[in-house]
């Protein structure tokens, strides 16, 4: 995945001012930084939930939101963007499980209705994904009957069921009670070990240090500092990084 000079403004405020970044297959990149720094916006731009105003975002050789033809990027119809998003999973801060569907049905929704996999086959795979996040016994419960940690694990299974090449995590543990954070991080840790490509917006410095291949510190719409976690956390060069780390550690 390659991000080139991405800009994004909301109203008059420029929230992303020239982001460049490359993520290789199998890498785990953690985005950190103060709120309002543009981390979540960048993540939402990667699967085109937000339109970028300038720059390019390439995932698996495709320019997201566009088609390359005759040396120009042609804007895609929503339908075509939807097809591009199949290879990009996303996990939200507020879980966003479909409230009218059970845990298993949440997972089936994509494979059955988007990928067109026969229901019976998808059901079997769906149960495997649920088992993988440790919720085999909760298949028939509605989201309202699950704890936050369980909901987030179902949400991860829902993203996995699309067999994506990249998963975006938007502060996956920020809405959870402290004692439930661990179970979600465990699932993410296991995913990283299996070689999933992940971009994680998080405040969990411990997780970023242990699991991340790269840590990227964003501040004020720009990348202030990027490098290996040991370097960014152990020997920060930027003042803002130091101030931020002093607060969260």
């Amino acid at each position: 995945m390659r991000i080139v000079d991405v800009h994004k403004r909301f109203g008059g405020r420029e929230v992303l001012r020239g982001i460049d970044m490359t993520v290789r297959r199998g890498e785990v990149v953690c985005l950190l930084g103060p709120s309002g720094g543009g981390k979540s916006t960048l993540l939402r731009c990667i699967n085109h939930l937000e339109r970028i105003d300038r720059g390019e975002i390439w995932v698996d050789g495709q320019p997201i939101g566009y088609r390359l033809r005759g040396g120009a990027l042609h804007e895609l119809h929503e339908r075509e963007v939807a097809a591009q998003r199949r290879i990009i999973g996303m996990v939200f801060q507020r879980f966003n499980l479909f409230a009218h569907r059970t845990a298993l049905e949440n997972i089936l929704e994509g494979p059955v209705n988007v990928l067109g996999i026969p229901r019976a086959a998808a059901m079997e795979r769906g149960r495997q994904f649920l088992a993988r996040v440790g919720l085999a016994d909760w298949a028939n419960n509605y989201p309202a009957e699950l704890s936050g940690g369980q909901q987030q694990r179902v949400a991860i299974a829902r993203a996995l069921a699309m067999e994506p090449k990249l998963i975006l995590f938007d502060e996956p543990t920020s809405a959870l009670d402290p004692e439930l954070v661990g179970e979600v991080l465990d699932v993410m840790r296991a995913l990283a070990k299996e070689g999933m490509t992940m971009i994680v917006v998080t405040h969990e410095v411990g997780f970023a240090r242990e699991v991340g291949d790269h840590a990227v510190f964003m501040f004020d719409g720009r990348i202030a500092e990027a490098g290996s976690p040991e370097q960014v956390f152990g020997n920060p060069r930027h003042d803002r990084t130091r101030q931020f780390l002093a607060k969260v550690l």
Binding site: G89, M90, N96, F98, H100
Partner: peptide, 27 residues
């Protein structure tokens, strides 16, 4: 309907029409 429901549907590759039919309308 919470905007998050719609974003989640888009994130798993649903088209706007399918999102309306399967996620928004039933709720």
């Amino acid at each position: 309907i919470d905007k998050g429901q719609i974003e989640a549907a888009h994130a798993i590759g649903m088209t706007p029409a399918r999102t309306l039919r399967r996620i928004i309308l039933p709720q």
